[in-house]
């Protein structure tokens, strides 16, 4: 009980739900961006800047970035446990990759903040 709470890694059901819930958000964002590029004849700086200065778009973008972090936390763990057998090395690689995922979120947050 204590271990499972302290490890931040919850049970399989939570991983199952998280990977799907985040996938839906990221797919929605991808389709929205696809629609934006198809429906906008010429993407200009003004239009591009205006898109991301909209509060709804900021929330959508940030939700997508958070989803990426949660999704890769599970996905990369699944892949690493299959191919990197040495526990120490796997922990190190996972640390670095999760750190990069956090950087994605942090960069996104501060860029959105400044728009």
């Amino acid at each position: 009980m204590v271990t499972s709470q302290a490890s931040l890694k919850r049970d399989g059901v939570q991983d199952f739900v998280t990977i799907r819930a985040t996938a839906i958000i990221m797919t929605a964002f991808s389709l929205f961006m696809l629609w934006y590029f198809i429906s906008t004849p010429t993407v200009t700086y003004e239009g591009w800047h205006a898109l991301f200065s909209h509060l709804g778009m900021k929330v959508f973008t940030f939700a997508t970035l958070l989803s990426i972090m949660l999704h890769v936390r599970i996905g990369l763990w699944q892949v690493l446990t299959d191919y990197v057998k040495a526990a120490g090395l796997r922990a190190a690689v996972q640390f670095v990759l999760n750190l990069i995922a956090f950087v994605y979120v942090a960069v996104g947050l501060f860029v959105l903040w400044g728009i």
């Binding site: 890769v72 990069i100 960069v107």
Partner: peptide
Amino acid sequence: FFALLFVIGAWACSVS
């Protein structure tokens, strides 16, 4: 995951 380095980098630059 690694492509995001370029995607987020390009996005951050393009809106700045």
